[in-house]
Design a binder for these strands. Structure first.
Length: 548
RNA sequence: GGCUCCGUAGCCAAGUGGCUAAGGCAGCGGAUUGCAAAUCCGCCAUCGUGGGUUCAACUCCCACCGGAGCCUCCA
């Protein structure tokens, strides 16, 4: 059963529209993926994470969703970069695609159904160009094919631009265009460039046509949702839209979604943007004095670092696998949660401090989950252990008059209402924090930490409450598996557990004898190496502090 | 220059024409604890500036100041 109370902000209409699918119960969505010429940076993850969340939410609401993310593996940048590196374009694309996919996996983006590569769809691309020529929306000049912008009366509507304000690319291509705003559908290849045979000679596709061709093949001529970064609105999406609409005589997409761009804290410009890439770009006469050169970069995370340092550095180093390192330091779940804390349409301030803060707040959930596992003796993460509801329409509220649990039920509604409102994950996470507080309050008020409070009905109610937390976590794609511990715990778990047991026993005996000097010495020593002890009603527990 | 968007507490960040303006981080007070940690309770904002519309605006309109994006490859 479908539950639809969703409204989506649509770039095309510039308003929040009621969500209505083309086919009942089915959703087709397409997200513009990367051009795989360099390692991914955090900015590349915004779209995938929000779309992954959108798909989870739509599935939760009862839809059958097909999600496509394309991989652009042929492009001028790829050609140039592969030459630079002395490898083939194919090799470069393969390794950078692998990097991209592993980053997605780390962030829990696992809902993608199709990852089409442009080079695997040359036939469809060529056919698409052919159709546009036949329908007189495109023209051939030399070995190039251009889209004729003036033939499309609706051109410019998505990005709110008039045709005469279009500025086309200059260079030798300009002379072969009818009007400057025309863009290439097919580019003739020079002898030393990768190329494919076509009716117009050897060449490669233009930048925009692959998305039109691949989305048509997989999702059809008209589909529900198309997304990408705000920077793609023009020219990429405007052109894609023009190609598809002109070719098919019907709308390409119902809802155009655009995510805001990441901005490096204490740095100018978006992450991965011009300022990041162009080391020596003081060309702009902005009147601002050139930044001081930052030669030595302090340890990231050192908040005492001078401005123009750590945070800026992270985005700058994207060419050297910046994101993979970031994930290693902060864990994928932390980065995902960080991205979800703000609204996808807003510009997000990104920096080491912001990430650390997201991590600190996440700890409260992890502690609650540990508390649950300790009390109930069952796993929170194991799919067969804690029951939770996968579909919105199947929800059955726990029967109780307990205030804390009633609050959890109320917060679930609030959470879902926020998700309904243009996928407001930033607002929804707020409800999650309140939910955690309510669940802790339930534990405290019912004395679940002690044997006396663990009545079957209390334990059952508690499990139902935690099930709601898990239900909502699953929509956001978090709390699906245990958080990553420090890497050095791997492989030595048993020895570590044994040692900790021993130390705790020694300390407990000292405390029993009221030898607090001794017990504090043990605890302080452990704290110093990153292990935290917690004295509870039923003994002492320990945990390793995760990287900050 | 053209076209968009943003400016909410020390920091991050939701949100609304009228009820106490979410939540997080940090901080402070209390309960709890041998002391801590964790947890719970409480405190911590008149929403960039100046006008206007309105019975009523942080929320709508205008101007200004400040910031970002696109117009060229970009998630």
């Amino acid at each position: 059963m479908i539950t639809n109370t969703i409204r989506i902000y649509n770039t095309l209409t510039k308003s929040k529209d009621v969500f209505q699918t083309i086919q009942t119960g089915k959703v087709g969505m397409y997200l513009c993926g990367p051009t795989v010429y360099a390692e991914a940076h955090i900015g590349h993850m915004v779209g995938p994470v929000i779309f992954d969340t959108i798909k989870r939410f739509l599935v939760y609401c009862g839809y059958e969703v097909t999600w496509v993310v394309n991989i652009t593996d042929v492009d001028d940048k790829l050609i140039n970069k592969s030459r630079e590196k002395g490898i083939s374009m194919f090799q470069l694309a393969t390794s950078m695609t692998a990097d991209y996919l592993s980053n997605l996996q780390s962030l829990g983006v696992d809902q993608i159904d199709h990852l089409p590569r442009a080079t695997d769809h040359m036939d469809e691309i060529i056919r698409f160009v052919q159709e546009l020529i036949e329908k007189n929306f495109a023209y051939v000049n030399g070995g190039d094919v251009f889209f004729d912008v003036l033939k499309d009366s609706e051109y410019g509507r998505l990005s709110n631009r008039s045709v005469d304000s279009q500025q086309g690319e200059g260079g030798d291509a300009a002379s072969r265009k009818r009007s400057p705003g025309d863009f290439a559908l097919w580019k003739s290849a020079r002898a030393d460039e990768p190329s494919w045979a076509s009716p117009w000679g050897l060449g490669r596709p233009g930048w925009h046509i692959e998305c039109s061709a691949m989305s048509r093949r997989i999702l059809g001529k008209t589909f529900d949702i198309h997304g990408g970064g705000l920077d793609l609105v023009f020219p990429h999406h405007e052109n894609e839209l023009a190609q598809s609409r002109c070719c098919h005589g019907q709308p390409m997409v119902t809802y155009w979604l655009h995510n805001g761009l990441m901005q490096a804290a204490e740095a100018k410009g978006k992450v991965g943007g011009k300022n990041d890439r162009d080391e020596a770009s003081h060309a702009k006469p902005t009147g601002v004095s050139p930044e001081p050169a930052n030669s030595v970069s302090p340890e990231p995370g050192n908040s005492a670092a001078p401005a123009n340092s750590a945070e800026t550095k992270i985005s700058r180093s994207k060419g050297a696998g910046g994101l993979a390192k970031l994930i290693e330091k902060h864990t994928g779940e932390r980065i995902r949660f960080f991205l979800l804390r703000s609204h996808y349409r807003s510009t997000t301030l990104f920096g080491d401090e912001q990430l650390a803060e997201a991590g600190a707040s996440l700890e409260a959930f992890y502690r609650l989950i540990q508390r649950f596992e300790r009390i109930s003796g069952q796993s929170f993460y194991d799919a067969t252990s804690l029951k939770y509801n996968r579909h919105r329409s199947e929800f059955v509220a726990p029967v109780t008059s307990n205030e804390a649990i009633l609050e959890v039920i109320r917060l679930r509604e609030a959470f879902l209402a926020k998700m309904d409102d243009d996928f407001n994950t930033g607002g929804a996470t707020g409800d999650l924090f309140e939910m955690a507080r309510s669940l802790n309050r339930f534990i405290d008020s019912q004395r679940l930490e002690e044997a006396v409070g663990r009545t079957p009905s209390n334990l059952d109610l508690f499990a139902q409450g935690m099930g709601i937390l898990k239900e909502l976590g699953a929509i956001l794609g978090i709390f699906m598996k245990p958080p990553k511990q420090s890497s050095n715990k791997e492989g030595s778990t048993e020895i570590l557990d044994g040692l900790m047991k021993l130390l705790i026993q020694v300390r407990t005996e000292a405390r029993a004898k009221r030898d607090f000097a001794m017990s504090d010495s043990v605890r302080n020593g452990l704290t110093a190496i990153g292990i935290t002890l917690q004295d509870g009603k039923e003994g002492t527990t320990w945990s390793i502090e995760r990287s900050s």
